[in-house]
Computed example of a mutant assay.
Amino acid sequence: MALEPELLSALASLAATPRLLVALDFDGTLAPLVERAEDARALPASAAALRALAGLPGTTTALISGRALDSLRVVAEPPEDMLLIGSHGAETWTGPDGAALALTADQAELLARAVDVVEHTVATHPGTRIEFKPAGVVLHTRTAADDVADAAVAAARAGLAPLGDISVTDGKRVLEVSVIRADKGQGLALLRETTGATALLFAGDDVTDEHAQRTLRPGDVGIRIGPGRTSAPFTVATPEDFSQVLEELVSLRTSRAPTR
């Protein structure tokens, strides 16, 4: 795929910024979507480009994902110094001195009730699956028939409605439930502040990534992977196409990056 001239120009400007942050979603962006979340792996070209960027002066890389941090570490195999945002912003890893996520007693009780709802939904809707997170629970419907998936989401929403102060978000064949109200926009803002970035690249493929796309500033570059309404100024069709974006940024940043 040939990159659009406007995107090439934006990448060239981004590559010259003094402090660059490259913060990326994982599933559907670095890794193609798969039926079993545990089987996802980054495309080799994207993984290599991200490693190359991390080794350049004035450049920080990060992953910002809906996955729990433990799951993200397994599938992404990030280097120890890569910054991580998990559970849509509820979990953060900005270094060994960072505080671990801890729920209050009320939050823990609320999470247990939400888990009961989703477990019952999965038990009564064949092909659906449950994923547990430190601050939430996820209903997966990718391996269910379409009518079963729709019924499962409706049933889960009905069961969760009386619980009150929880966050319920639709994604691509998932229903995300969290007892901590956080989103990728908040996570990206934390990464920007932590790194002192003067500009950043953010890319994602899902509706939950739009929280981050809407926080971008002049000089930043936002990219949507695949179809769908988006606030991102640029779109590429597939994770394979996004590999080319990262390779182009490596080339541009190598020639333009500031010295350490």
Rank of each mutant, 00 (worst) to 15 (best):
V138C: 14
S231R: 08
P32W: 07
A16G: 11
I225A: 15
A10W: 09
E248L: 12
L50C: 01
H125D: 13
T60Y: 02
D220S: 05
A257R: 08
E80D: 14
R19K: 13
A15R: 06
S9C: 15
L14N: 06
A197S: 03
G89P: 00
V138E: 12
A135R: 12
L3I: 09
L216E: 11
V138D: 06
E248R: 15
A112L: 08
A199Q: 15
A149K: 13
L72N: 10
R73K: 10
I180T: 14
V148S: 01
A149C: 11
G164D: 13
D70F: 09
D116G: 01
L191H: 05
D206W: 13
R214C: 11
Q107T: 06
P239M: 08
E38Y: 04
A182S: 15
R51N: 14
A47F: 01
G204M: 04
T198D: 14
R224G: 04
R129K: 13
T124R: 15
R19Y: 09
G204E: 14
A197T: 02
G89N: 05
A47T: 00
A182C: 05
L246E: 14
A155C: 10
M82D: 06
G185T: 00
L188K: 02
G159R: 12
G171Y: 02
L69G: 00
T208P: 05
T143M: 14
A232C: 04
G204I: 11
A10N: 15
D81G: 15
R253G: 09
A123N: 14
E109K: 13
S167H: 13
